[in-house]
Design a protein around this nucleic acid. Structure first.
Length: 535
RNA sequence: GCGGGUGUAGCUCAAUGGCAGAGCUCCAGCCUUCCAAGCUGGUGGUGAGGGUUCGAUUCCCUCUACCCGCUCCA
């Protein structure tokens, strides 16, 4: 199975188009066509129903420590700029960063200075964080690198003054500020770029705002509102589906990495002592959800982050990943991340942005000794009215990509098999074996031939079904061709009016996957299709 | 971000410094009583801009998009 065939089918049948295609397209942006929009809506609706509106809050779900509540939310895309300062997104926005592959530390590209130095026939660029004692630090680091003693300090031949790392093009001879080896710094890169816009008529910096890079922050800043207006006790999950925007450097792989995309996120607030159990619950529950909707478990993995990948305040983060056809053998792409975020977010919005590196977490201070980014000052902690205990809840965050899930469902459903044609000869068939809940069109209605009054009866059946489902009517051409067209659209059921219908008011229902037909009464069609879709 | 490749009809692919072609699809009609290729007819195209040229889809440049590899992936 190759991605080109899937992309081709998506275009041909109207699942996905390139954005602004007539103008040459725009990198990282995609449009959903008539079938695609139905599919994606069904994905989102399945998530919302299963996680939120049909959630059973009376009973303890399998694997859960206790019953819990769920509510939904729909926040704006543009929020107060301070939100992104306290969330940490803003700091990562402005600047080019370099990462050290050896120490895993990250530096602002323009805040590292260095000097060329030569000794033992080797010339390197020694760096240090820009500051008052940088020359001293560089000297110490150079001595250590060349394995020289203080008394041999004159062996170091300096070439030029302290210069900014931004002046250096080739990083292979650069010694990172904390590294032991040369060339461990990555190329400078902007990441986590937020799209910037301006609120109000003035386009000055005072009106600067950002399109949200995630929906999660809207939930954190509304935590108290939701709690106060719903009278829920914890544990409580708050869910949101909505567009997010990230100015990705390298959008690629169809819709997998887009600059405008839709997220389905839950922030689950619970008592710190129970957060680990809830983390495990959500991780397993979310994997099971993809499975229930038909994703082949052999193509999915749950990848737990290793301890050194985790922020220290986090008990765990797991990526739910799918083996997309455009990825190399053995590689997977992230569909959803489930992470334990501790109280980092709520406290950052209360006290000011916390410093992820501190343990226990402390507010990150600016050069003036005051909080670098001031929080709201509002109390976002929780008082349990039964126990009278007051605490800042811990958060489990299952964060899924709606577009990635849609793409995974598409890829997973795509098959090419062989089925006989009207002469019994085997022919190639492209089919989307989508779960009936996700299928854009639930059923198609055909008259077997376009005469003998069959179209009239078929149209009646069509209009009846249309009250309940997205259905499609087609009377053109041979019936076999119509079946195949629906196979490509992923339509699970085709209802055919034939000669016998006119005698006994029955029709056949043809199954997309087995090609088997059953004959049922017209009056029962709607209920039978409904039963099959809901499984 | 770097290197390489590609861009011709809805799809798959031809051809050409001088009227751009096929198959499939699609549409209309005929035929057709259950799994696409029966008949007739029809619609429809050189990614964008600039240059060279009497004339450019073809040669050159720029842009753009997609694919592959590397890098990266909050």
């Amino acid at each position: 199975m190759d991605m080109d065939s899937i992309v081709s089918l998506c275009k041909r049948r109207g699942f996905l188009f390139q954005s602004s295609e007539i103008y040459g397209g725009l990198q990282g942006f995609w449009d959903y066509g008539p079938l695609g929009v139905e599919l994606k809506r069904n994905v989102k609706e399945a998530w919302w129903r299963d996680m939120v509106s049909c959630h059973d809050d009376m009973n303890t779900l399998e694997g859960a420590p206790s019953p819990y509540s769920m509510e939904g939310l729909d926040c704006t895309i543009i929020m107060h700029p301070q939100v992104w300062k306290c969330s940490g997104h803003y700091d990562l926005f402005h600047d080019f960063m370099v990462d050290c592959k050896e120490t895993k530390k990250r530096y602002r590209h323009d805040q590292l200075n260095g000097r060329w130095v030569e000794a033992k026939d080797k010339k390197v660029f020694v760096t240090a964080a820009a500051g008052d004692d940088e020359l001293e630090v560089m000297t110490k680091r150079a001595l250590k690198f060349y394995n020289l003693r203080n008394k041999n300090i004159d062996d170091l031949k300096w070439d030029g003054d302290s210069t900014c790392l931004t002046e250096i093009e080739d990083l292979s001879q650069v010694l990172g500020p904390d590294a032991k080896e040369l060339g461990t710094l990555t190329e400078p890169r902007e990441f986590n770029l937020m799209f910037k816009t301006y609120v109000g008529a003035l386009s000055g910096e005072e009106g600067a705002a950002f399109l949200r890079p995630e929906t999660a922050q809207g939930i954190f800043v509304n935590f108290k509102n939701v709690l106060d207006s719903t009278r829920h006790r914890l544990p409580l999950g708050i869910a949101q589906i909505g567009k997010s925007f990230r100015n990705e450097i390298t959008p690629r792989n169809f819709t997998f990495r887009s600059r405008e995309f839709e997220q389905m996120e839950i922030e689950f607030f619970c008592h710190p002592d129970e957060s680990q159990k809830w983390y495990q619950f959500w991780r397993d529950r979310r994997v099971a959800w993809y499975n229930e909707l038909g994703i082949d478990m052999k193509k999915m993995i749950l990848r737990e982050h290793t301890p050194d990948e985790l922020a220290h305040y986090s008990i765990g983060t797991a990526d739910i990943e799918y083996q997309f056809p455009f990825m190399a053998e053995g590689e997977f792409g992230e569909l959803e991340g489930v992470s334990h975020r501790g109280d980092f977010d709520l406290r950052s919005h209360m006290e000011g942005k916390l410093d992820e590196k501190t343990n226990p977490l402390e507010v990150q201070l600016g050069e003036d000794g005051k909080p670098k980014w001031k929080g709201s000052g509002k109390d976002l902690s929780y008082r349990d009215n039964l126990t009278n205990e007051k605490y800042t809840p811990h958060v489990i965050e299952p964060s899924a990509g709606a577009d990635r899930a849609t793409l995974a469902f598409l890829c997973d459903a795509y098959r090419v098999d062989e089925q006989p044609d009207d002469k019994g000869k085997m022919q190639k068939r492209e089919v989307l074996k989508l779960h009936p809940r996700l299928a854009p069109i639930k059923a198609a209605v055909f008259p077997l031939v376009k005469k003998d009054g069959m179209p009239e009866v078929a149209k009646d059946v069509y209009l009846k079904l249309k009250k309940d489902f997205k259905v499609f009517y087609d009377e053109k051409g041979a019936v076999g061709r119509r079946y195949r067209r629906q196979d490509e659209a992923g339509t699970p059921y085709c209802i055919t009016v034939d000669g016998q219908t006119l005698d006994d008011q029955t029709v056949t229902i043809r199954d997309r996957d087995t090609l088997e037909q059953v004959r049922v009464k017209i009056d029962e069609v709607s209920n039978i299709v409904k039963e099959r879709i809901e499984g």
